[in-house]
Amino acid sequence: MSIAFKLQNLYTLVYTIGLKNIKVKYKNSVLGFMWSMLHPLAYLVIFVFVFSQAFGTIERYPLYALIGLVFWTYFNNSMNQIIQSIINNGSIIKTIALPNILFPLSAAFAEFVTLLLSLIPFVGLMLFFGLNLSAVSLLIIPAILVFGIFTFGVGTFLATFNVFFRDVGILWNTLAPALFYFTPIAYLSNLIPEKYLVFVKLNPLYHFMVLFRDILFYNQMPSANTLFITCSLATVMFVLGLFVFNRYKRGFVSNL
């Protein structure tokens, strides 16, 4: 089989399973797809009430918080889905010969499509909150792609270990809320005291938040530093995720 054929085949599979994931996720809920928007909105309301008091007069705070929340929600949902993707498809993996990367890939694909669709109303809301569109805004497209690659890499890395140690999934559920508050989503990154900034910068999500806010909130070209760090993080995690996956995939059938 040629590589082109293999890729075409993988694409068809990812598309089919990804679409199925989206369908199943919202199948039995009345509001269906709306939930992917209601979740960040609920948090936004809380943040606006609580934090705009705490931080006083920050201009366009709802816009600031919404940008953080949209991308956090995407990251969190993707992690939950990708980490469990191999285990959840155990019966298929043990029965049908398929490229197993299909499962983390289609989970990532489903969440990515959800993000893109939810961006349509969210951009409307952002405009209402004072988003200024300019040529710089177009950078959000490659920025989302880079974040998507990063998310897939981290997720695949964790999903692989989750097959052998279900602790990984539990650990993620435990740590996700901590990561949420460790990342400047609700609070402004320039409020972080200089001496703690070193630690905050160890959090990869910090750099992505800076990237998204430079583009959408400050309407400015992200710094070379930010671009370099985010692109490097995405590349490293993507390669590492695939490497670990390929190294351990032969153990999947006997551990599912």
């Binding site: 199925k20 369908k23 199943v24 199948k27 039995n28 019966s91 043990k94 049908i96």
Partner: peptide, 15 residues
């Protein structure tokens, strides 16, 4: 090769 190993793998109950 068509494997008939476990019946029902891949079926999605909600669909």
């Amino acid at each position: 090769v068509a494997p008939l190993l476990t019946i029902g793998a891949g079926l999605e109950y909600e669909l």
